[in-house]
Simulated assay, not measured.
Amino acid sequence: MPFTPNAPQFLFENYTRNDKEWFRANKETYEKEVLVPMREMIEYLAPLMGRIDNRIVCSPKKVSRIYRDVRLIRDGMFFRKSIWFSLMRPKERFVSKPEFFFWISPDDLGWGCGYYNMPSPVVEKVRMYILNRDKAAVKAIDAYESQDSLVLDGAPYKRDRYPNEPVRYKNWLNRRNPVVLHSSDDPELFFGDKLCERVAADFEKIAPVYELFIKAEDAVAAEDSEKTR
């Protein structure tokens, strides 16, 4: 089922009230208006994820919890303002993995591909691939530049560290945590019945970016394994 205006409205009111009793009394609305559409989108994306990487886990359990981690509550806010899901391989060596993600909030929605926090060894490996014009790196950047829906983001350095590189490469090289994403506050997109198709189409377009990140991560893991033998 598509999202309705009740989804962002619920997230806003629940966050603003910050009242556990109110949430429990309105949990049915949360499940119907937020959880069901999120889980249905995961189900819709599952075949595509399997084609991109059959190790990606697509499960309804991938939807984030609305309650914040009690260990991180210092401001008295019990609930998250946004809800998201992240589709990735099972976590192994690195806490953070390359992922396809989607979120909604009272203000916007969005999706993309990247890391929550790319491990330093993986960052360096991705940069090496770009500098060496590895086929996976060129394919990923070509895929990004061939579309106009998602933008490149992710903590750029203040100083250009690669002044002699072409712009198409330095845009990636000069970021601590490169990620491609789309965000929107367009209600026609948010509440339209074509949202799942749009997200799937964008994920398919940027699959080479995911493949570059996975190649880098797998290479780092193989090197570490070799060192421990």
Rank of each mutant, 00 (worst) to 15 (best):
I214C: 07
L45Y: 05
L35I: 15
A136H: 01
G114P: 12
M88S: 10
P178C: 06
M41T: 04
P178T: 02
N132W: 02
S183I: 14
A25R: 15
R161A: 00
L195F: 09
V167S: 12
I56W: 03
L11H: 05
L109Q: 05
D193T: 14
C58T: 13
K194F: 11
E204Q: 09
P8F: 01
F10W: 08
I42N: 08
F102A: 02
V95L: 11
D185T: 08
L152H: 13
S184H: 08
E124I: 05
V209Y: 14
A201D: 01
I66A: 00
F23C: 09
V122Q: 03
K27P: 09
E31W: 08
A136L: 10
D108P: 03
P2L: 09
M88R: 07
Y30I: 11
K97E: 12
E197H: 07
S183L: 12
V151H: 11
A155F: 01
N174Y: 05
K194A: 11
V34K: 01
L189G: 03
D69Q: 10
L131S: 05
R17N: 14
V34Q: 06
E165P: 03
E40W: 04
K205T: 08
V209Q: 13
K139P: 00
Y129G: 04
L189P: 00
L48Y: 09
V179Y: 04
P119D: 14
T16I: 01
L131Q: 14
R68A: 11
R71Y: 11
G50S: 14
T228E: 15
V122E: 06
A219W: 11
D148L: 07
E204H: 01
V126K: 10
R51N: 14
K170Y: 02
R229Y: 13
C196V: 03
N164A: 07
L195Q: 04
A7D: 10
P2F: 04
A136R: 15
R159E: 11
G192R: 07
P187D: 14
S86A: 02
N117C: 12
K20V: 13
G76K: 04
I104C: 00
I42W: 01
E145C: 12
P166A: 00
P166S: 06
V95P: 05
K139R: 15
E145R: 15
V220N: 11
R24I: 02
L109F: 13
P60H: 13
F102V: 04
L11N: 09
V126T: 12
P2H: 01
N14A: 09
R168F: 02
R55K: 12
A143T: 05
P8Q: 05
